[in-house]
Structure formats: structure tokens, C-alpha cells
Design a protein around this nucleic acid. Structure first.
Lengths: 256, 256
DNA sequence: GCCGTCCGTTTCAGTATCCGGAACATTGAT
DNA sequence: ATCAATGTTCCGGATACTGAAACGGACGGC
């Protein structure tokens, strides 16, 4: 038999029961009000296993059952908020996002990297449809480029290798060399731009946010339709405005 | 040996491995940047068990490890947001809370009941210190009284029996009869008041929010210091203002 | 520079407990 | 009244979870 360093078999590390639990939670998340039958089908675990797990989760209060339908419970909000306020800077960024949104009257977000993905942490803009918690590929967004620009070439290469440069739109950077060049530009300018690389018709600008002791926190961004996001606006006004706000966060962290 | 129907032993229903997992997560939540040693102590599970579980959780991406310290990951934000937008009404309430906060220049919240507790779902007010996801006893808050007022006497009795009427402040209603009377008043008036029953120096007003088909969604509240929350304000202006907003939510749900 | 301590990682055997097929109960629809 | 579909319970069997113990590495004190 071939030496099975072919990673496929060995990756089942740790506790498989827990994996089942979270597989169920993910399945719950994807749809509104799911029944046991739905879940057995969607996870192809046997009915009795699904039943037992859900019983545990509802007993713990993490899953809610209302007349036969199961829902993810609010206990996860508690856990999530813990993550969102893990670092003081995250809370400071919340205010910055709000103010940015108000001042520019465009969408503003604060984004953090986790597991090589961009996670929306704070957001200003249309009150419905919060993208909070959503995850996106780093290389397709201004905010993500800012994250990648913090890494050295080795780090970026590793990202390219492990995640790949999937094309989200026709404009997405998919060529490694182009990405390296773009990141160098980001480092030079101190801000990153996204020109319909993540969504057609949308441009964005992003700057890094640092703590007083030069720790990278995340990226602060503004984005909007190409019609309003002219070259001047994107390369002139917004970068300085964003840098100002990033600076304010830093000051907030340094003094009260 | 005595017949052990003494419930103490039997409540371990379902999957005990999952219980361990969530015990660990709760321990993680309570403190910033926890090490394996910390967790073994806090959960008194053996070191190797903690290790194995954390390995699984980080592998799944639900827990983050950074130089020896473990943190709850942003994946929980995703799950939590699912709960927060479970019903369309919840998102509609978000806007209402925001507007209410702006108009009154006081703290405003939207609260939902889960497992006989009040859960903060949306909040307007001091940008730091979000209480989102926090859980409080129903009987000590205006919003909670609104929830209880939706139940019949049997339902309320069950609440009293199972949860109890703990005193949070000297003003908290701890007498069942007093609670029944208070709830009757709430039903009559259509709004609930909280007079320093939850926190000294704080008064609050709350009204129920219904969907177009008369489903109870949650409660919309405004609260603030006793100095500003005079009797007139609390019993006159705020109730009508709140009822208006609750009505708007309902209209939003009915049409676009 | 050595030793002791603490902490994370790994190993391993035993068995608790998780699993899942299958039977049973319940509901609802035709 | 019958049937189908779903939720609940039961139970034997083996998986895989557990936890004691040993290992290795890092750190700090002396």
C-alpha cells in the first residue's frame, strides 16, 4: 500500500463526537426551522444520532426547539460577542466604523483576519442584512489586501498555496505575481483599493489599524458604487480620512 | 441502596462528550486568553482531555490558538447572527431600537425571551460595552414583565416555581402575589415599567411587539436614570412613543 | 550552567459511552 | 380506517473517548 502521508485519511484528529455536533449546528444555521428528518438527510447521520445530539444541545440551551423545529439559540450570540470584544481595539473600531459611515454616507466596515479569511466584525450601512460574522477570501477585497500586505513574501506564498486565488469577479486578482505587485503598492501607499474585484460595480478603500504598540488589529474600510467612488475620491479623500480614523482608534487605545 | 429516582443522577441526558466541549467553551468565554493549564483547573477535566478537545475545536475553526492562549473564534458570531436574524421581526426591531435611541437620546433595547430568560438582541446606547447576548431574569425588568404578561397564570406560576423571584435590587418584586398584580396592570395598560428593580437609579418602560398575525415577538424598551425618567415621562410620553414604534415594526412586517 | 518546576504533547490500555439499526409510538393526511 | 412519515425509545456491540502516566521542552531560580 502507498505511504498514506496523503493527508486525506489522517485529518480526523481529536474528538469525532464534537465534529458531529458542529456539523449539526452548521446544518441548523443554513436553514430556518429545521426538523430532525431534515437534519438526518442533510448530515447523513442516522436519525437516532441526530436525535440524541439535538437533545443534548437543547438541554444545554444552545439549540431551541419549538414545536418540532430546531433553531440555533441565543447562547451563541454570547459567545460571538466575546469574540467581537476580545481585544479592546475591536470595540474602539466599532465607534470608528459608525462615524466613518455617518461622515461619508457610505458603507463602512471593520474587518479582521481569522484562519486566512476576512471576517466582518463591525459594519455601518443598510440596517437590514448585517454581514457581521461572514467570511470572505482575503485576496478579493481591499481589507484583505491590507491584511496580506502585513505578511512577508513567504506568508503570502503560503496563503496562495493553501487557499488559492479564486476569481470572485472577472476583476479579481488571480495571478500570484500580480498579487505580489499589488501588495507592494499597498505597503507603499499605506492603503489598499478594491476595484470590482469582490463584487461588480463596487469599489472600496481600506487602511490598516494598529494598536499603540504597533500590533496589527484589522482593517478599516469604506466601499460603495463605482459611480460615486471616482479615482479622486478613492485615492485622495478616502485614504486620508481612513488613516485619520485609524489614528483615532490608536489614540483611544493609548489614552482612555 | 436507596432508589435513585432522586433526579440528581439521571439528568445527564444525551451526549456527555458534547457537554464537555461546551463546558470548555464557557470557560473560554469567561476569561481572555486562556491556557490549557487554566482550563484543566477551571473545568477539572484531565489535561489530556482538555488538550484533545481544544485540538478538535481549533481544527474546526471554532476556537483560535495564538501562542499558547486559546480564544473563542469568530465562527460563533456567524451562528449568533443567525439567531439574531431568525425572524424577520428581529431585524425590523433593530431599526426601531436605533430610531428610538436617537429620538429619545436614551438607551433603547429590543429583548426576546429564551429559556425563561430575557436576552438582549438589539441595543442602542454607549458604543462600548454591548450587552448583546446577555441574559437576565424576566421578573426584574420592564421588558421581562411584558414577556410574562403574555402568559396565563399557570405559565407565570411555572416561571416562579422553576426560576424563582430572586431580588436583584431592594426594589425587585419578590412576592408572587405582587407579581401577579403587576402583570395584570401591565396587561391593562399595555406597557410595563421598571422602577429600579433591576439596577438602582434606573427606570425603564417597555411594550410588547407583535407580528401582523398577532405573534408575540419580543419587547421594545427605553431606560435611563431616575432623574430624567419622571413619572410623566415614564407613564405618558414614553408608552405612546414606544407603542408607535412597535406598530411601525408590525407595519414593516406586513408590507415591504 | 545546572536543576527543578511547570506546561504542553504523546502514548496506551480499558471501558465507558457513543453509535445506529430496528422496533415502537404518534401524528397527519388521504 | 389505512398508510406514510416522523419522532422516540431500546439495546447489543465496538468505536473512540477517557485519563493516568510518561516524555520533552521552556523557563526561571539559584
Amino acid at each position: 500500500m502507498d505511504t498514506d502521508r496523503d493527508e486525506t485519511a489522517t485529518d480526523e484528529v481529536g474528538v469525532s463526537t464534537t465534529r458531529k455536533t458542529f456539523a449539526l449546528l452548521e446544518a441548523l444555521k443554513d436553514e430556518e426551522g429545521v426538523t430532525i428528518a431534515d437534519l438526518t438527510e442533510r448530515t447523513d447521520l442516522p436519525k437516532s444520532t441526530v436525535y440524541r445530539h439535538l437533545q443534548t444541545l437543547t438541554d444545554l440551551g444552545y439549540v431551541i426547539e419549538r414545536d418540532g423545529n430546531y433553531y440555533v439559540g441565543f447562547r451563541f450570540v454570547e459567545l460571538g460577542e466575546q469574540a467581537r470584544s476580545r481585544r479592546v481595539g475591536y470595540t474602539a473600531a466599532k465607534r470608528a466604523v459608525f462615524e466613518l459611515g455617518q461622515e461619508t454616507d457610505e458603507r463602512a466596515v471593520f474587518i479582521v483576519e481569522e484562519d486566512d479569511e476576512a471576517v466582518y466584525v463591525h459594519r455601518y450601512g443598510s440596517l437590514t442584512n448585517t454581514m457581521i460574522g461572514h467570511r470572505r477570501p482575503l485576496h478579493s477585497m481591499a481589507a484583505g489586501k491590507v491584511v496580506l500586505a502585513e505578511r512577508d513574501d513567504d506568508g503570502v506564498s503560503r496563503y496562495i498555496e493553501e487557499v488559492g486565488l479564486e476569481a470572485i469577479t472577472p476583476n479579481t486578482i488571480t495571478d500570484p505575481d500580480a498579487l505580489f505587485a499589488e501588495l507592494e503598492r499597498v505597503r507603499d501607499r499605506g492603503y489598499a483599493v478594491n476595484n470590482q474585484e469582490h463584487m461588480e460595480g463596487l469599489r472600496g478603500v481600506s487602511v490598516p489599524v494598529y494598536t499603540p504598540d504597533e500590533d496589527f488589529l484589522g482593517s478599516l474600510s469604506v466601499f460603495g458604487p463605482t459611480s460615486r467612488f471616482t479615482d479622486d475620491y478613492v485615492h485622495d479623500e478616502l485614504p486620508t480620512r481612513l488613516r485619520d480614523k485609524a489614528g483615532e482608534i490608536r489614540v483611544t487605545l493609548a489614552y482612555g
